[in-house]
Nucleic acid binder design. Structure first.
Lengths: 182, 182
DNA sequence: ACCTGAACACCGTTCAAGT
DNA sequence: ACCTGAACACCGTTCAAGT
């Protein structure tokens, strides 16, 4: 890749992260191009779809997911507290930008989604937490990690769609936790 | 209202119901106007916003909600079966058209929503079912009907966004039920 | 009083012309 | 090889002119 191309690509990703944070995942791409100082065509050359751009943005976010997972696994307390904590952490991770919860959760089972890789990171994180709880004999039988992701994703989507802070749905996450625990 | 105005209004509602069923709640309004044989301005005169049109469409749907509620209340079986059955019924009622679950659930706590009346019908239905379970001492303390609506709405939204049939999320509804029951 | 449909605005996407 | 930006498509919304 030519040096100027790489520079443009990087600028687009940085600017997009900013714009999406301000206006949500469905912000006009035109504005991204404008602020990045490139033509619309350049944006489309690098990222043929909005999802391709999202995927690039989420690159750095993977580290945050893994960090949060380690923290959860190191938690020393009751199984319920660990689970509720993880559900809140998970909801927070997918609610970074407006539109995120719906986007990520609906990709969560679609092998053809352009952001499937990022979903797998999340699903595996969730799996590790469930494994730990299962080893302790704390889970009801038949609980699968992807299902948990969808359930919490649904709750986060509700809060996001209604423009309400995640804290308002904490009681719902507790219901989910109680439904998952033995 | 003049006779021709009423005729146009009725035609618009009928056609919109059809178009929304075919293409979801965000189908082009242009198509509704065209199929109804009216100008775009006429549609906007009668229904200044898309939500106002939705609200009109959902008028007949209220009967169906009440019918389903009666059926649930008359159910003779275990509390868990009753609850799971209601959650599935509820999910079905809000999933009539694509986009419905998100639309209805995000309006579910916003007093300014144009479809708030329809949400209240749902919330009250949910309340009656919870009351019956509560009278039987089956519910965990602190469960409120609107919360249940949001939770199930979240699950239905997930299925709807991913273009998957509701049956795929039945296990998730069981988790919710277990979380609600004592 | 109500209707029509052209016109405008907005935004996603493409592509011919330029470097 | 990459970029620009005008041009096109699509759809929501308004409004002047008509009945």
């Amino acid at each position: 890749m030519r040096a100027d191309a790489k520079r443009n690509r990087d600028r687009i990703v940085d600017v997009a992260r900013e714009v999406f944070r301000e206006k949500g995942y469905d912000a006009p791409l035109d504005e991204v191009a404008r602020r990045a100082g490139v033509g619309a065509g350049t944006l489309y050359r690098h990222f043929p779809t909005r999802d391709a751009l999202l995927d690039a943005i989420m690159q750095s976010w993977v580290d945050r997911v893994n960090e949060a997972t380690e923290k959860t696994l190191a938690f020393e307390g009751s199984d319920r507290d660990l689970l509720v904590g993880w559900l809140e952490t998970y909801a927070g991770l997918i609610s970074l930008h407006k539109g995120g919860p719906a986007k990520i959760t609906s990709a969560m089972g679609d092998p053809d989604s352009p952001i499937i890789g990022k979903c797998q990171v999340l699903a595996q994180a969730s799996q590790r937490v469930m494994d730990r709880l299962d080893a302790a004999g704390a889970l009801r039988p038949g609980v699968d990690a992807v299902g948990v992701c969808k359930l919490v994703g649904g709750v986060a989507t509700v809060a996001d769609n209604a423009d309400q802070p995640l804290s308002t749905v904490r009681p719902l996450l507790e219901v989910v936790a109680d439904g998952l625990l033995r």
